[in-house]
Nucleic acid binder design. Structure first.
Lengths: 209, 209
DNA sequence: GACGATGACTTGACAGTGTCTAGTTTAACT
DNA sequence: AGTTAAACTAGACACTGTCAAGTCATCGTC
């Protein structure tokens, strides 16, 4: 080959922001066709780079997916903060807002949400990922703690109550995504949200005693 | 090639029970290394046939996985019946037994359980799969109906209560499998069962009013 | 300013995959 | 006995992830 392409400034050798470009391509690929049709090579193609380039930034496919999942957890965390800030500032309403953020994140970005819990494709030893995931959990736990304290319930209930609430919202989200059983198809946000709010209303005495 | 192998009865041309052999090989592969390292060709190898043989019985990889998932749902259904038969014959105890069967199935066969909800690898239009999955759900719903009736609660609560209980146990199972968050590692059955029983005890007033 | 060194990226190869097509073997049915 | 259809083999294709080796650009140092 001569030097590069004949024309001038297109496709410089150094991409400059390949890391971000690859993460963006991953997002596009996931949203379009899901994790199963995600391909490292296609990802490189979209970023306009050769198939071997991603290895330099992420090691292998698992590394790229792990980085993307960490980013997704951070987005969830941000959404959670946002919802809680907009909610009525009472403990239970804040908890509900937290759950709603979780649900909306799942239903709004199904493929991204599935990846976040696909332990077989992720490197759970990765510090970024585990930090981001733990942050989401701790946020949730903090909400629950406020609910229990306001209701004067013993601290010993925190673990079980957190497990209960988180299992509930996580189970709902995954069943809605991967099982048609709730008669609430993907995309039917309103029905899903209504169902969640109803369950949270019913569960209230469980947490507030 | 002469006719076949020189020796006599080994590897007859017609396998005789290839369908079952392939399903068994799938089970072995999943249990050993999970869905991600499952391979149609390796599966054929284990069954002692050529790589193209499975297509005749299952069409493609999705078809084989779908058939296996249907079988797994049937196993779950059988386990549920078993647990319920052994339980104390009171509505709530039967409901708890049902949930426990679900949990044990998930924790005892993590890869199989994950596959059952991997909608991207399954053909949900398959009648066997949808029938087997629906059977599990209806079994669950029937349990809940008995609880509500015994407690004299309105029929309108059936939907929400079923959704609640199923989300709870499904969420617990998946979070235990794909997230280390419950500090209850895979294999720590007793802690998981204890946690589930505790949550079901706490939730009792929610369902019995 | 020349110059190593180092990171960013390309290129080609390799083993492996799922699926397709065409061909071969066997059993079953007239 | 001869035909038909099912069960299975064998080879090809396009594609994948990863690896090794090479090329290109930039940056700090003399």
């Amino acid at each position: 080959m001569a030097k590069r392409e004949t024309s001038g400034a297109e496709t410089p050798y150094h991409h400059g922001a390949l890391r971000e470009a690859l993460l963006a391509a991953t997002e596009a690929l996931l949203d379009e066709a899901g994790l199963e049709s995600f391909t490292l090579r296609e990802c490189a193609r979209r970023a306009g780079v050769s198939h071997g380039a991603p290895a330099h930034h992420f090691g292998d496919a698992r590394g790229l997916l792990t980085a993307f999942a960490a980013q997704s957890f951070e987005q969830l965390e941000a959404r959670t903060s946002d919802y809680m800030a907009r909610a009525e500032q009472r403990p239970y309403e804040r908890l509900v807002a937290n759950g709603l953020a979780y649900l909306d994140h799942a239903l709004g970005n199904p493929h991204r949400f599935r990846l976040m819990f696909r332990s077989d494709r992720l490197d759970h030893a990765d510090p970024d990922l585990s930090r981001a995931a733990a942050a989401v959990f701790h946020h949730f736990e903090t909400c629950m703690r406020e609910v229990l304290e306001a209701a004067g319930r013993p601290h010993a209930d925190l673990g079980p109550c957190t497990a209960h609430a988180w299992s509930l919202v996580h189970g709902m989200a995954t069943l809605m995504l991967d099982n048609g059983m709730f008669a609430c198809r993907v995309g039917d946000y309103e029905a899903a949200r209504a169902m969640f709010l109803d369950l949270m209303r019913r569960s209230r005495p469980l947490f507030e005693g």
